[in-house]
Amino acid sequence: MNSRFCLILLLVYYWGLISKAAALESDYFPVLAMEYPPFTTEEHPEGGVLMAELAAKTASYKLLPKPLFMPLLRLQRTLQEGNWCTSFAPPLNEQDYPSVSTSLEQLSFHLYRVQQKAPFQWQELKELKGREVALIRSMEGTRTTQGLLQAGITPIYVNSLAQALKMVTKMRVDYALADKHSYQYYQQQGLLDGRVLEASQQSIFHFESRLWLNPECRYSGQIQAIFSFPAP
């Protein structure tokens, strides 16, 4: 793991030590999220490394996140209806909403396949024509999937990244679209049946990790102010 990700894990540990004391006198703001370990997950007592990082950032201001995990369709409907405060999932027309960055900044997504001797690379994506790639359902209709389709690659939509990676280990699809942190997490959790996957040398797309804010939420301005303060 790189140093930035290790720092986030340290924040998780730190937040576990202070959370009980801080919770006694803090106010809470709701945070929408979908299951995406290790970043946002109900499997972690603090809601994942991004939730823990957020809590460590706001705790000294007596403000704590309250994770609200939802399936993708319900989360998207909640964002569209406007009944939300903050979200790790981008709202429609995300450019119209304020947001703050996380320490992860940007995630790079690659194709993952069962490890082979030949290097996993290409000159043009269309060289993979006729292959199938498993990816999470929230990617449906995006520019990324349009690019895959134009290259002759068939997207297979699944409900979780774990399911996508498992389909590769069981040889049900050729590739899975994933980031290295999530792949390492599932590998360490023993969820890939001991199979080693390899990432393509080229990335497929990049995603900037941010927390989006609803201006109508009474905590929005306070959170923006907290993130504007220099780190101690």
Rank of each mutant, 00 (worst) to 15 (best):
L24W: 13
A176Y: 04
Q95K: 15
R74P: 02
A199Q: 12
G82Q: 06
Q115T: 10
P67F: 00
T86E: 03
A22I: 04
A134H: 01
R195Q: 13
M34K: 00
G48M: 00
R74M: 01
M34P: 00
Y186F: 15
E43F: 10
Q184K: 09
A225K: 14
L68K: 00
P232F: 13
F120N: 07
P119V: 03
T40G: 02
P67C: 01
R131F: 13
Y112A: 03
Y61P: 08
W15Y: 14
L64I: 02
S99Q: 14
F29Q: 03
A176M: 02
I153D: 04
E46I: 04
K129I: 01
I153P: 03
R210Y: 06
D174L: 06
K166N: 14
A118I: 13
S3Q: 15
P155E: 05
W15K: 06
L75R: 05
K170N: 15
W212C: 04
Y97C: 05
L104K: 02
M34R: 04
Y185C: 05
L73W: 15
N93G: 15
E81F: 08
F205H: 07
S228E: 12
D96S: 14
D96T: 14
G190C: 04
Y13V: 11
L111W: 07
A33I: 01
Y183R: 08
K57G: 00
A55D: 01
T58L: 00
Q188Y: 06
C217K: 03
Y14V: 08
E216Y: 07
H44K: 09
F120R: 06
